[in-house]
Design a protein around this nucleic acid. Sequence first.
RNA 1: GUGGGUGUAGCUCAGCUGGUUAGAGCGCUAGGUUGUGGCCCUGGAGGCCGUGGGUUCAAAUCCCAUCACUCACCCCA
Length: 413
Amino acid sequence: MTKRIKGMYDILPPESRIWRRMERTFEDVSREFGFERAATPLIERTELFSRSIGESTDIVEKEMYTFKDRRDRSLSLRPEGTASMVRAYVENKIYAADPVAKWIYSGPMYRYERPQKGRNRQFHQLGAEVFGIEGAEQDAELIAMGRLFFERLGLDGVELKLNSLGDMEERRTYREGLVAYLEGSRDALCDDCRRRLSTNPMRVLDCKVPECKQISKDAPLMLDHLGSQSRTHFETVCRLLEALEIPYEIDKRIVRGLDYYNRTAFEFKSAELGAQDAVGGGGRYDSLVKTMGGPSTPAVGFALGVERIAILLENQVGEENGLDFYFVAMGRNAKERAVVLAQRLRREGLRGEVDFTDRRLKHLFARAERQNARYALILGDAELERGIVQVRDMKAKTQQEIALDELAVKTLE
RNA sequence: GUGGGUGUAGCUCAGCUGGUUAGAGCGCUAGGUUGUGGCCCUGGAGGCCGUGGGUUCAAAUCCCAUCACUCACCCCA
């Protein structure tokens, strides 16, 4: 038997219901904020990702599914969504008519990592991007949208962490200072952190090794070295979050793994997920559009991890998504009649199915029960002869007869 | 890429100081009850004990290898 490949998986009932719900909720909430859907290919030229995400990031260096096509061009499965959104924005010259665009997207992403809880090689993201708006108000509103999404799903316990990464210039200066500081204790750092000194020094700040924690305790933090404009921007975001009554926590050690972020950086976290506790993350990327060949255009966005949110939903939210009716039809004639009657009910907006098996009645009821059906509709030769159908309320265990011609939403209520 | 744990029925697992025919619960299925569910009773199907090799009179059980899954590191949504 051919088996699925490592890190990939099937999404089957009943879990698939949860997925539908997330998609729908995200679509609805984002629409309320004026967003529209965009969709881009799963495959792009490799350079799109290496240029936007950063040559020396882990994602680009060792996690992408990269291969050559038949003409020897280097292509990659997308490891995240923002790069393609920016490419589409620039390539289609969206800015020409109006620089402001608010897009959402969703779909699978691919990263070649060692799978563990909440981390797979194929995973799904729900993402939102706003182009053309530089104000901090937009950052706050975007965060508010994410927040509302979690609320609509009925999830509590999702925490918001906030930080500022400064602008590109401030970060460069800060980074030099940080490296200088850390170099002073180089020998005491763990192997990973010594490596990070040259790749991503800010990562040292959230290393879990006690020695590193000790050293980074007094390290300079970006948030304390913001320029006045970045500081004002950050303070505005904070003030608005408070006005919106969105609880948040400033976490000076949040670091984004993608190079293009600046200023506002945030994460949605849950304590219920184990090691992979980020259910969403995002921030500002004001220079990316220009880097990718477009006009200088500010932007801010986030991405949510569908699998991780699904874990939370399975933990927290009880599903009751039953059918309205379950048609128990016995005999060829009754089944044919039931198909027609069921369709009539569906046209009126009811959900239900017809049982086509020839199993014992006992069985059909057990199945109606498992499908969480409100009514069992019983139709056999006896009923056909009399022109009626037995309608059994599964919960109340009461039964009444309704004429076949009159079977409709009204008579069921 | 690094480290730990686990692979026995569709699912959850027991059996593992070697010993005849490999078990339980749930689920599935047939019936008890020719057309009325959740409970109860009885029967049935379903296993190369992850895979390959080794030790032994004898391996689900011990040894080696390998693969898969899983948790953590790393990284990130």
